Amino acid sequence: MKWQSALAIYFLFWTFCVFLVLPFGVRTTEEAGGTRVPGQADSAPHHFPAGRIAVRVTVVATIAFALFYLNYTYGWITPEMLDWIR
């Protein structure tokens, strides 16, 4: 696999992992004990630590990509194994 392909696939894993990691650890304003701003959604986070979330996403995406790359290299699960229709 070329490094450009690996980088593109890693970027796709990172993007997917953003949506996987984003809901965890979020506290609403009510849970944090603050007062809501008029017009604020009930589910809006009280504080959004973008740096911490980016680190978490990077860790999860790196682990997922490493498993993908190891499977690509060693062929643990192949498309033939997943063809149950035949």
Rank of each mutant, 00 (worst) to 15 (best):
Trp14Arg: 07
Pro45Gln: 06
Gly25Glu: 06
Trp3Cys: 01
Ala32Gln: 09
Gln40Arg: 07
Asp42Ile: 00
Met1Pro: 00
Gln4Ile: 13
Ala54Val: 00
Ala32Tyr: 06
Tyr10Phe: 15
Ala54Tyr: 03
Arg27Lys: 13
Thr28Ile: 06
Met81Phe: 05
Thr78Ile: 08
Gly75Lys: 07
Leu22Ser: 09
Phe19Asp: 04
Phe19Pro: 00
Gln4Phe: 12
Ala32His: 04
Ala50Cys: 03
Glu80Ser: 10
Leu70Asn: 11
Thr15Ala: 14
Met81Gln: 09
Trp3Lys: 08
Trp76Leu: 15
Ala61Met: 07
Phe65Glu: 07
Leu12Val: 14
Thr78Tyr: 04
Gly33Met: 10
Tyr74Gln: 11
Trp3His: 05
Thr15Glu: 06
Gly25Phe: 01
Glu31Ala: 09
Glu80Cys: 00
Ser43Cys: 10
Leu22Trp: 12
Asn71Ile: 13
Ile9Cys: 08
Ile9Gln: 06
Pro79Gly: 02
Arg27Phe: 12
Glu30Lys: 05
Glu30Asp: 13
Cys17Glu: 06
Phe19Gly: 15
Phe24His: 09
Val60Met: 06
Glu31Asp: 08
His46Pro: 00
Tyr69Lys: 11
Asp42Gly: 11
Cys17Ser: 12
Ala8Arg: 14
Met1Tyr: 01
Phe16Ile: 11
Thr58Phe: 09
Thr78Met: 07
Arg36Asn: 05
Ile85His: 09
Gly25Ser: 08
Cys17Trp: 03
Ala8Lys: 14
Pro23Ser: 09
Gly25Asn: 06
Val18Asn: 07
Met81Trp: 06
Ser5Thr: 13
Ala54Gln: 10
Pro79Tyr: 05
Asn71Phe: 12
Leu70Lys: 06
Asp42Glu: 15
Leu12Tyr: 14
Leu70Gln: 11
Arg52Met: 07
Gln40Met: 09
Leu82Asn: 09
Phe68Met: 13
Ile63Phe: 10
Ile53Val: 13
Leu22Phe: 08
Leu20Gly: 00
Thr28Arg: 00
Leu7Ser: 13
Trp84Ala: 02
Ala64His: 02
Val57Arg: 08
Ala44Cys: 11
Val37Glu: 14
Cys17Val: 00
Val55Lys: 08
Gly51Ile: 03
Asp83Leu: 07
Thr15Met: 13
Met1Phe: 04
Arg27Val: 07
Pro79Val: 02
Ala44Leu: 10
Ser43Ala: 14
Tyr10Thr: 02
Arg36Ile: 00
Arg27Thr: 07
Thr73Tyr: 10
Thr15Pro: 00
Phe65Cys: 09
Ala61Val: 01
Ile9Leu: 13
Ala61Thr: 01
